[in-house]
Amino acid sequence: MKVAIVHDWSVGYAGSERVVEQLIALFPQADLYFVADFLPASDRAFLAGRTPATTFIQRLPWAHSRVRQYLPLMPLAVETIDLSGYDVILSSSHAVAKGVLTAPGQTHICYCHTPLRYAWDLQHEYLRTTGITGGIRRAAALAVLHYLRLWDVRTAHGVDRFIANSGFIAERIRRVYGRDSIVVHPPVDTEYFTVAEDKRDYYFTASRLVPYKRIGLLLETFRLLPGRRLVIAGDGPELSRFRREAPPNVELLGAVSRSSLRQMMQQARAFVFAAEEDFGIVLAESQACGTPAVCYGRGGALDIVLEDESGVFFRQPTPQSLRQAVLQFESRKTRWDPHSIRRNAERFSIQAFREGFLRVVESAGLISPVLQPSRVGT
């Protein structure tokens, strides 16, 4: 049985790359295809020494730094990937990977991180970040994004099984594509992010500093909570602005090492999470460290956090709503149990991901010599 793994573009080791890493572990003889591969040498270990085949997007001018600006060409690019010699196609898709061309007799299983987010939920952010804010360029971009939505829906018919990374995305797949899906949560390294009971008196978050992560909301909230300290780890285009605007009780660290990230998660009083994410691996990692959460009660957070057992939710994306949630968190009469919070996070382990993915493979009637039981737990 010949297997191909297809992925969107990669510029770093993030959530979708963790899924690809596990697919490689489960299907070590599979061939890899990326729309574009701009991974730095420091982030390539998950490929296990493999070099993905790429499309013409790889060779376009400035694609290394502006790959998202070539989104209108990516449907054409992914359709140029020749998969005619494969029995099984596994796509890891947050944009266009699920749109590969398949034929009768092939089985296509798509792990969907989200329907094409730049054409649906994040259309306006995509226009802002690419500098398309008005005039003829904006009108043309809106027309292209409309085409992308039509293409996205049409190509969903080429998928035999959809896997969603959360209940939130399963509902989005149902709404956008009219298809059912099976939820298999992304793999979280619960062996590395371990529980700690030594909690200190600070709140913590880790995030890429881009608009939809709502870091500005955290700054304004903790301006209303001058007696509490917030520490923010992460880099991004808004770091300098946030450092200028942050109140004295908020510290922005910039990029930190993985070991430092784990230690800060373990020792934080609570992990604060304001974004509406498809899943939110960093939130699950903090739960694996036994750290309770104060998080926005929408999106993938509803799959991760158990209300009043591993954290509290705020319902409106406003400083007042988040401030009230922090006060509610602090007023809890019983101690937050880090070991109970840790047990909640073990649902998202690498082992759980592999077993869940293989159940979908088996439900599609696929049997492969590479899927030996001895490999599942490795």
Rank of each mutant, 00 (worst) to 15 (best):
I89V: 15
P61E: 03
T107A: 01
T54G: 13
V67C: 11
L90C: 00
V67K: 01
A53D: 10
R117Q: 03
D82A: 04
L73A: 14
P104H: 01
Y111E: 00
R68P: 02
S92R: 14
H94W: 13
P52T: 04
H113R: 06
V78H: 07
T54M: 05
H94N: 10
L73T: 14
V67N: 12
V78M: 01
I89K: 07
Q69N: 09
C112D: 04
T54V: 14
P52K: 09
R117K: 11
V88K: 03
L83R: 05
P115H: 14
V78C: 02
Q58C: 05
I81P: 02
T54N: 07
Q106E: 03
V88L: 15
A103T: 12
A77L: 02
W62Q: 02
R68F: 15
S92A: 13
I57D: 09
I81E: 01
V67D: 05
L83W: 13
A77G: 00
S84K: 14
T55V: 03
P104M: 01
P115T: 06
D87T: 04
I57S: 10
T55P: 00
L73M: 15
P52F: 06
R117E: 07
T102A: 01
Q58A: 03
L76N: 06
A95Y: 13
P75H: 04
A103F: 14
L73G: 08
L90A: 00
A97F: 04
G99A: 10
G105R: 13
L101V: 13
H64V: 08
I89Q: 03
L101D: 04
D87Y: 09
T55S: 12
P61F: 06
T114G: 11
I89A: 00
G85D: 14
P75I: 06
S65A: 11
Q106R: 14
Q106F: 09
Y86L: 08
V67Y: 13
A103S: 15
P61M: 07
L76C: 14
G105I: 02
V78A: 10
V67S: 09
V100K: 07
R117P: 07
L90N: 03
G99Y: 11
P75R: 12
L71H: 02
P52V: 08
T55N: 08
S93E: 09
L90S: 07
G85F: 04
K98E: 00
S93F: 11
H108Q: 09
M74Y: 02
D87F: 08
R66T: 06
S93G: 02
T114I: 10
R66M: 13
